[in-house]
């Protein structure tokens, strides 16, 4: 009775990996697995490194180096090197789609340089290695700087023709290599990483264009040489095709002022003046972002899906070329709803 049964996987005999890193391409893959090792109540993060031909193979090889069975069901983040992403992401994730014990709710993160450095950095954190990145992404998602893409939601985009993926991009700049920071979002085109990264201050406008529900966008600039900071609370968007090659995007923003060291806004006329300034400023920023997207043929906005619904005949296999040549007119209208506690 106590010998256990066929499918028994005793939790105490399994090592729960929370962070996985993959780099290289097929044939010479390298994977890293971070898991906590418990020593009298304290847990210490151990990192296993393994080579192999594909992702599963590296995992099997890694298993040889751990005294317990390795389990990826609790994995909360995968770090992917730029070289791997450039080769096309989908085929490397196949093993995660297929195996039911694997977690497909893990976040995908692109990293600059060696994946190993990021894995090693996790040793110095108090939180669980994978959870650290997961929290990092979630908190940045709140302010619209990065979109949140798990293995599954990324797959839905990767398999869709009319939309391209963007993934959070991390860099390790500090001297001791302990604190990775957000480098922006990496752009994909047709499932492959383009190598181009939107800086965080730009990627937030991608967030604005995508208009995810419940997200806030914070922005600071100078207005008449005085600092001006505001939060965009809500976005209303309207897309339409003016002519086959022109796309018009209207956005209405609801803005709350956060910092504005002027005499005040008691004068109502001043508000519209300020609104016009904000409109212009944001339109410039947005245009810049769209230009980059078009350069890289990365349809992160899902214009392809939109087109497919409105103008089915325009949508074909050549969509990415069409996208690059599309004329996109952005019109931003902002409205200052709140000014904080003072005028």
């Amino acid at each position: 009775m106590l010998a256990g049964c066929w499918d028994e996987r005793l939790y105490k005999d399994h090592t729960v990996v929370s962070l996985v890193g993959i780099e290289g391409t097929y044939g010479e893959m390298k994977s890293y697995f971070a898991y906590p090792e418990l020593q009298s109540g304290n847990s210490e993060i151990t990192i296993i490194e393994a080579n192999g031909i594909d992702v599963r193979d590296t995992r099997l090889n890694a298993d040889l180096k751990v005294e317990q069975a390795m389990d990826l069901s609790m994995m909360s983040t995968i770090l992917i090197s730029e070289t791997t992403a450039k080769d096309g992401l989908n085929k490397y994730l196949n093993v995660f789609y297929r195996d039911p014990t694997n977690s497909i709710t893990a976040f995908l993160v692109l990293v600059e340089g060696n994946v190993k450095d990021y894995m090693e950095a996790s040793k110095s954190w108090t939180t669980e290695a994978g959870e650290y990145f997961a929290r990092f992404i979630r908190s940045k998602e709140e302010v619209s700087i990065v979109p949140n893409r798990t293995i599954q939601t990324a797959a839905a985009i990767l398999y869709s023709d009319g939309m391209d993926l963007v993934l959070p991009y991390m860099v390790l700049k500090d001297k001791d290599k302990k604190r990775p920071e957000l480098g922006g979002v990496g752009l994909f085109s047709k499932g492959k990483y383009t190598g181009r990264v939107l800086k965080p201050e730009q990627s937030r406008f991608l967030g604005l264009l995508l208009q995810e529900r419940g997200r806030k966008i914070k922005y600071s600039t100078l207005y008449n040489e005085r600092p001006l900071s505001f939060t965009i609370l809500d976005v209303n968007r309207k897309w339409k095709f003016e002519s086959p090659n022109t796309m018009k995007m209207d956005y209405e923003l609801e803005v709350e002022l956060e910092e504005f060291s002027d005499v005040g806004l008691r004068d109502v006329n001043k508000i519209s003046e300020l609104e016009n300034f904000i409109n212009k400023k944001i339109t410039d920023e947005v245009n810049e972002v769209i230009e980059i997207l078009q350069d890289e043929k990365c349809d992160a906005l899902g214009l392809g899906n939109f087109l497919r619904v409105k103008n089915p005949q325009m949508f074909d296999d050549n969509w990415h070329e069409t996208f690059a040549n599309l004329e996109i007119q952005v019109d931003i209208k902002s409205e200052i709803l709140k000014t904080g506690l003072i005028h």
Partner: peptide, 17 residues
């Protein structure tokens, strides 16, 4: 704990582990 520990959320699972 003996079959389906993947059902636990990560934070809870570490406590149990």
């Amino acid at each position: 704990v003996s079959f389906h520990f993947e059902i636990l959320p990560l934070e809870l699972s570490n406590q149990i582990k």
